[in-house]
Design a protein around this nucleic acid. Structure first.
Length: 519
RNA sequence: GGCAGGGUAGCUCAGCUGGUAAGAGCGCACGACUCAUAAUCGUGAGGUCGAGGGUUCGAGCCCCUCCCCUGCUACCA
């Protein structure tokens, strides 16, 4: 039996500042997918990383008096520390300033030039150049003939000779591919936007730029002999490919990727430019690009300036990384936008984790200890559990990718199981059964059922809350590591004979209502 | 401006091709219980389904007009 391969990536983050809530949502979501796929028996390779070239990075580094490489080294460390704190289980962290990536980018460009010599051509690019920004400005950035960021300066009309990529040639191919493969771009709202974009026709894009000092040298010199820097598309996007080792070694065993998880704002680059590049190079396309939505902060649109308004580490520290992961994915539908606020964070944490789940575990374990000397009875399964299996099916349907990656729906399905277990407890009143010697058999069934439900819940929640679910699994006496329990085993799980051991509360209630910082 | 999606209880949203008296979760009020993290369970309050008109035996769901919101409309990433 062959193990299905599952290579998934997130967008690589731009090394121009510290990680914020928006970065975190994407990594957490992708991490849940990676962990679920591992539990589903796939051979998962999960890659994240950093996009480290470009004028902005060079400028920011210069502003701090730092060498750009040293600067990005520092940023990368900070991102890595954040991902470690959040429990991101990436298998690889790619950086675009590494020698292998740079060589891979050049190899890809040469490959395209060899296979489709007409796809790269030299052309003059003329535009309004802002000296302050050190960049060409588009009409949207210009007001009264001035750059909106540097209104005191006069825009210069500058002309330079660049390499261009003949993207326009691939419009029909892309439309056909997207039409024939509905799963290629998801959710469907993004797919529709791209189809609309294709209907407008495609323009060719720059592949190299002058004045781009902090960049991968474009491997083809201009006719003037000048060597330019590789422009962003041809540097950043290929990371998904160079991460496999391309062009060396056994990269073909991992490429194409099964899934690129990205933010909805960069959909176009991932489903238009990237596939066109791959097609030009004669390489297979990734199977799916999933564009998630954004987190708003206190009802405000999340932006770079708003990013500093929420200290990511403070949010993680408040209730722990697992709780943060849970609340974020519960509040923000992974196929759309959602809102984050301290109020909701607290409400969700208290209602879902402390009261519903944490207390369920606490009361069930306490009763097994008290009434059955900590050993879970081995008895038959009551009919009341039948409904759980519908929810388990819904859980899989939310996470197996067939309908997209509806992480929030997976959590809803588990929440229903938690609620049902609490209802069952109230209906059976095991504390009453314990008083009646003739009800011992009934009590056995109830207690075994509760621990069995908790076992299923901890397996299902493990991708979302890897640490707390391992704790829960240990508390109910589950054998081995919860992360080694395949989701296929859910239906057959049985806790008979397990020895429970009550520990500290999984999700302690907040001690006091925290102040509400202004967003 | 063009294209697309949306406006349903305080909040976040379900409502399939129109048809039993409009739903869920959270929050709120009251009651029950005591195994448990003062948790849990039950009951209840609360909605002119954006506005107006139309089609139909019947519309939150269809049609028209209008108001409002969001996304996309390509070289920052």
């Amino acid at each position: 039996m062959t193990v299905p391969r599952f290579y998934l990536t997130t967008a690589i983050d731009y090394a121009n500042g510290d990680p914020h809530l928006g970065h975190a949502l994407e990594k957490i979501g992708a991490d849940v997918i990676a962990r679920y796929k591992r539990a589903a028996g796939c051979d998962v390779h999960f890659m994240i990383g950093m996009d480290e070239h470009g004028q902005k990075v060079a400028q920011t580094a210069a502003a701090q008096g730092a060498d750009p490489q040293a600067f990005t080294d520092e940023i990368a460390e900070r991102f890595l520390a954040t991902w470690a704190k959040l429990g991101i289980s990436h298998d690889q962290f790619i950086r675009t300033t590494t020698p292998h990536h740079k060589a891979g980018v050049q190899a890809l460009i040469r490959r395209i030039a060899e296979r489709n010599p007409d796809d790269f051509y030299e052309q003059s690019y003329r535009g309004l150049y802002c000296v302050g920004c050190e960049a060409f400005k588009q009409p949207n950035d210009i007001e009264d003939g001035r750059c909106t960021l540097h209104p005191t300066r006069v825009l210069e009309e500058v002309e330079e000779r660049n390499w261009f990529f003949r993207l326009s040639r691939y419009a029909d191919f892309l439309r056909a591919h997207i039409t024939a493969n509905p799963g290629f771009v998801q959710p469907s709202s993004r797919r529709n936007e791209i189809l609309g974009l294709l209907d407008q026709g495609l323009e060719d894009v720059s592949a190299s730029r002058a004045r781009l000092s902090w960049a991968v040298p474009f491997p083809l010199p201009l006719s003037t002999g000048e060597t330019q820097g590789t422009y962003v598309w041809f540097d950043a996007l290929p990371n998904y490919l160079t991460g496999t080792g391309f062009p060396d070694g056994d990269w073909e065993t991992r490429w194409p990727a099964q899934l690129h998880v990205i933010g909805k704002d960069i959909t176009r680059f991932h489903v238009v430019i990237w596939p066109a590049m791959l097609q030009a190079a004669g390489l297979p396309l990734p199977e799916q690009v999933w564009a998630h939505g954004f987190v708003q902060l206190g009802g405000e649109r999340f932006s770079k300036s708003a990013g500093v308004k929420l200290d990511l580490h403070e949010a993680i520290d408040r209730f722990g990384a697992d709780a943060f992961r849970y609340v974020l994915l519960r509040e923000v539908p992974f196929d759309g936008d959602g809102n984050f606020s301290w109020e909701r964070f607290e409400e969700r944490y208290t209602a879902d984790l402390a009261n519903a789940l944490g207390n369920l575990a606490s009361r069930a374990v306490a009763m097994v200890e008290k009434y059955r000397d900590s050993v879970v009875p081995s008895v038959s399964v009551p009919a009341e559990e039948a409904d759980d299996h519908e929810d388990i099916a819904a859980y899989h349907a939310a996470l197996d990718g067939a309908r997209g990656w509806l992480l929030h729906e997976g959590l809803s399905a588990v929440s229903r199981q938690v609620a049902r277990a609490n209802e069952y407890t109230a209906a059976m009143a095991p504390w009453q059964l314990a008083k009646d010697p003739n009800a011992a058999a009934s009590l056995d069934v109830v207690l075994a059922s509760l621990i069995r439900r908790l076992a299923r819940i901890s397996v299902q929640l493990a991708p979302y809350m890897p640490v707390r679910c391992a704790d829960l699994w240990r508390t109910i006496g589950g054998p081995g590591d919860v992360h080694d329990v395949g989701v296929a085993q859910l239906a057959a799980l049985d806790a008979g004979g397990w020895r429970v051991q009550k520990g500290a509360p999984l999700f302690p209630r907040p001690e006091s209502t925290p102040a509400t910082p202004a967003p």
